[in-house]
Design a protein around this nucleic acid. Structure first.
Lengths: 344, 344
DNA sequence: GGATGTAATGCAATCGGTTGCATGTCAAGC
DNA sequence: GCTTGACATGCAACCGATTGCATTACATCC
């Protein structure tokens, strides 16, 4: 009745249903269902026959109906703070690949760094997914806990106790970067910082401070907020003015901007100034090629989905705090400290 | 029964259903349903009471159940050939934003340039979406038509008659680029080409040929396949060897690689060689900053979703072929042709 | 006062699957 | 030959909504 009156599938030849397949193959709907979900329960002959009919009709089980009945919809959601930030695409790609292999569909949400928007998305997704991955979530802890109670949930780069999370631990790489600069003779360096509320930024800043202190380097902080190519470029002037000989940036994007800003000021990199990035997402494509802390951000997506899966299948009840390692990749943007600080 | 035995919502407090709300507010399920979908049909008093109860219980209508009944799930799918290609993220972002505003959830698929994978994704999505957007689809025409018959479908950068499509028309921009090079005195140029099957590539190559012929320039084609930073870089050697003084690349990524390759060969850009990109996705972040054909790829995502929406709501029965304009953006990678072709 | 209309609500079928349990069949075991 | 059990299949309830139609309760109009 309503079926006839509404416009559903208007322009489509109606998708074949389980009933049609059942009728044609002369078995019950239950049998057709089982032919797809538990073929072992049926005789080989029956399975073959049913599948043949299904094939001919082009029948595919309706996911929505299945989900209603089983509560398993085969969907997961991935919410990122900014699709267009080069940090995310590789992560998204890896996450998707992993989900694909598990037969899951991925909803992608873009919060645009806005908690309200993030929550809106979450509300829309939660009813039709089996699990959630939140990358660089801007939500406050309480909110996150609420969602985590409703569905398996994995965080990326957010450290909340009791919730499974994947953390890209850039500290070792950053420390290596400082060591590298120290060995090259740099004594004064700048940290070009990112969002104060960002876990990653806090972590990086601390690593810089700690390692610098250990090696007796002086470090100043110059903000680039929000972290972007432009704010990085603008940071060049104050950095040069401060008299440091090297800078380590919050991320590659900022580093790239910084590179451009330095070029504009006629500062030669790496001859008279060294730059280190973070994340290794731009890596070889900058000029000069960027020395950076490689953070395997793609792995983060992959691992997060992996953890989500195991959580979804009931395993892994305990909390997991997965750390991903980092290391320094030396390319062409770092070099020995200039003999005298000023080229005079 | 099965409800009790399977693990559905294990860790969650079970989401309240329409029945619970109905019972508590002392009305039928139908009434609760209507309180949400057609409140005008009910007395104000009833609506208020039901909503109050729903609120208290934290009831939200189950999308999946609703979809089964109405055939409207509020989801659309967007399939791209490579999330990590910088061309796509802005497009994805714009598409998502538009869908968001319309209250739709977006499935993202990554075909990885593989038709088989693309089809697999399509199969998974089709049952749970109301519409599809295929960006740079690698599927053959027949396949696409099949899906287009089942659901509203919009193509981006694929020109199939009878199917709504958004085409980024780079021809004017490419022509302008050739004109620009001609005015700078270049007489021999190279086109660094992309995938032969790509609509964009065909279109760009033709535009180059046509405009070059008009202005009496000689143009050779050098492939960069698949189009990437690396293949662009590798194209530098043959290009220099060929003796041309300028190159226009299939896309910005290739152009960026080319820039790097030229730098490695000690060819000074723009003094002794000029490079033009396409898409304007890297634009200011290359060194030197790239002269490129700006293609407003973000708009493509936005427009595509817009067209999809109107198609979904039954409008727009006729075929639509939406062209997006392009123009040349001159930055720092192009300059006058060197006085003599060889620097001697 | 009875016919008529309208507004508010309930009944029950339906969407397309899944699954616990019942049923039927057939072969092996005693 | 009858019990027993394994195997294959069917029956029918159920998931959580939506919606066509029936029903009820009033108010209105002659």
């Amino acid at each position: 009745m309503k079926r006839d009156s509404d416009g559903r599938e208007q322009r489509a030849k109606i998708a074949p249903t389980i009933s049609q397949v059942a009728k044609i193959s002369g078995v019950s709907r239950a049998t057709v269902s089982r032919a797809f979900t538990r073929p072992g329960m049926l005789s080989e002959e029956t399975v073959r026959r049913v599948k043949a009919v299904a094939d001919k009709l082009g029948y595919v089980p309706n996911q929505v109906a299945r989900a209603l009945s089983t509560g398993r919809h085969g969907n997961v959601a991935l919410i990122v703070s900014d699709v267009a930030n080069p940090f995310f695409p590789p992560l998204i790609r890896a996450a998707q690949l992993h989900a694909d292999r598990a037969g899951l569909c991925v909803f992608l949400g873009n919060s645009d760094e806005d908690p309200a928007r993030e929550e809106l998305l979450l509300g829309r997704f939660i009813g039709q997914v089996e699990g959630l991955v939140l990358a660089s979530s801007r939500l406050d802890e309480a909110q996150i806990r609420i969602y985590a109670a409703r569905r398996p949930l994995v965080l990326i780069n957010r450290d909340i106790e009791g919730i499974t999370r994947v953390l890209i631990d850039t500290a070792p790489g950053v420390a290596a970067a400082i060591a590298h600069l120290a060995e090259l003779g740099h004594r004064h360096i700048a940290y070009v910082s990112g969002p104060t509320t960002s876990w990653s930024n806090q972590q990086r800043r601390n690593a810089v401070r700690k390692e610098a202190a250990k090696r007796g380097l002086k470090v100043i902080a110059i903000p680039a907020r929000p972290p972007s190519y432009d704010t990085g470029r603008l940071a060049a002037a104050p950095i040069v003015a401060s008299g440091v000989t090297a800078a380590i940036a919050f991320d590659d994007l900022v580093a790239q901007g910084l590179l451009a800003g330095l070029a504009a000021l006629d500062v030669d990199v790496p001859r008279s100034f060294s730059v280190v990035g973070c994340d290794d997402v731009l890596g070889e494509t900058t000029y000069p090629q960027l020395t950076t802390v490689s953070a395997r951000c793609a792995d983060a997506g992959d691992v997060a989905v992996g953890l989500l899966l195991s959580q979804m299948s009931g395993g892994a009840s305990g909390e997991i705090r997965h750390k991903l390692n980092s290391h320094l990749v030396v390319r062409a943007s770092t070099g020995p400290a200039p003999a005298k600080r000023k080229s005079r």
